[in-house]
Design a protein around this nucleic acid. Structure first.
Lengths: 148, 148
DNA sequence: CTTGCTGCAAAAGTTTTGCACACGT
DNA sequence: ACGTGTGCAAAACTTTTGCAGCAAG
């Protein structure tokens, strides 16, 4: 993976620095989605200090290298996920609890290709996000109603 | 539509005020997606002055009434769209030019229902967003390369 | 008269930028 | 040396919140 990033940087005349290596490592260690801030704190915790600005700058490079992709789930902040060599993940989000369930379904890939083809686009990525209310949130609601 | 909003507000013990009416009107007049700021400026331009805070507060109520839905396309800011009584719109986005093409496909509705059912969720909304490079952006790129 | 609404300005939160200095090649 | 990278702090931007006065049932 490291070499993929190296190549992508080289193509743009950029350097593979220790900071970028540390950030890539941290990203690779993440399971599922993460936020820029979370990455920052985790790196601080494990003694790999890199500035916030560098994290954001490096995430941009990782996006361009298609190693990471941006997942827009809510309007609060950007989420990222490791995406290299994987089918894009799709998400089921509870609007009450913010709980997020990941699911995958290979048919989206074909649908995305069809749409792109129809409009002459080159496909980069796609994402299906479903919003709903989880069973947990429903039970919580009922509990509240009984209180009232 | 107005009465839908009224009912939703009443259910929550809230009032249908002149400001909320004006914002609903402005939203109804919009074709496709819009941003909170755009709504603000348009309302200013047409002499319907409402404060920024009220716009944001009202958009929240419209979301809860399922009259409007939030569309997360990029990380810059939230986009909204009128959604009452419509199938959710899906989007094809050019990552170079930010051009957005709307498309619809009824099969997503069933897919979303299936996913929700499988996890015991109540479906609220869903969205399929495809990212790619538009033909326009490709031609622009080639032009740049020739320059170099 | 109690509850909710608005506008303003300030605050909050995330992401970007400017700058001075440091580093890699 | 050169261009690029980094950290820091400040800026920019969108969105939220507190508050004082107002409106409505």
């Amino acid at each position: 993976m490291c070499s993929v990033f190296r190549r992508s940087l080289k193509r743009k005349g950029l350097k593979f620095t220790p900071e970028r290596a540390k950030i890539l490592d941290a990203v690779l260690s993440k399971q599922g989605m993460f936020e820029a801030e979370a990455l920052l704190f985790e790196m601080r915790r494990t003694g790999h200090h890199v500035s916030k600005a560098t994290i954001y700058r490096t995430l941009k490079h990782l996006l361009e290298a298609n190693i990471v992709s941006e997942v827009l789930i809510d309007s609060k902040q950007s989420h990222y996920e490791l995406s290299f060599g994987r089918e894009p993940a799709n998400y089921l989000v509870c609007v009450e609890t913010d709980k997020i369930v990941e699911f995958s379904d290979s048919q989206f890939s074909k649908l995305a290709e069809n749409i792109c083809h129809k409009h002459g686009f080159d496909l980069i990525n796609y994402r299906f996000v479903v919003y709903g209310v989880s069973p947990d949130a429903r039970s919580a609601d009922e509990a509240n109603n009984e209180d009232a």
